[in-house]
Amino acid sequence: MRKENLLGYLLIAPAVALITFICVIPLSQTILYSLRYYNLTDQANERFIGLENYFKLFSDSKFYDNLANTMIFAAVSVVLQLLVGLTAALLMNAASRGAVLVRAVVLVPYAIPGVIVAQMFSFMFHGDFGVLNALLRQSGILSSAFPFLAKPGWAMACIIITNVWKQFPFVALLLLSGLQTIPAELYESAEVDGAGALKRFAYITLPGIRQMVLVVLLFRTMADIRIFDLVYSMTGGGPANTTSTLLYQAYIFLFKDMNFGLGSAWSTIIFFIILTISLIYLSLFQKEE
């Protein structure tokens, strides 16, 4: 038994050490920085200031705007990803001949970097040269150029659509694996009993993938709260900060303003939001075991 312990520790040591050096130690440093006045452009005045960065953060309306943007982005994204992902999963599960095609369509967005996806969609949403504008004008819905990414509200909608396209594959694949665990006999006997397609969906399919939906919800929420690349390359937080999210703003504080103290306070808050969700997630697994 002792030997087994030693072997275990020896084998996980490199991975644990790396994660400690790159994640755990820097995180504690970030928390320490968040308690200091620490500005690279004003290094002479660096000092410990307690919770002042946090007071400043919580009394700034910018924080609440960014928090609201982030939550709206994450909530709408996750719901839409679930809808598109479930549709794709049902199609993959049902269509025997078309399944290959659906699978290809699902896997392509996964393999494309977020930045590239952002540029693809920026071009499609472009006011003067975008295909969306062209189609809407041709069909008479729009009479003049409409720059989607420069209009408050619309810009957020564009980023959400882009994010849904990039991220639904993960949802689709997870839900598909959930669908495949539902025994076919259940459907067959329900059909014999005269249950229609809708009834079968509501009473067999949905309960069968309930657990998986929960997993997907939490996993995607955590990931979408961390949104950065799409905001960075599609809008830069604009117009008028309507697409600025917590993480993007933290990045601006840290690496544009070089305000390490305040930026670290924002980062610490983001970390704790995600930690809370991940604790829910892990306790969910515990219950399953």
Binding site: I25, Q29, F228, L254, S267
Partner: peptide, 14 residues
């Protein structure tokens, strides 16, 4: 849990 880490929270010290 390292998978869920927001990179921004470690970026400055790194």
């Amino acid at each position: 849990s390292a998978n869920m880490f927001p990179i921004i929270a470690v970026a400055t010290p790194l």
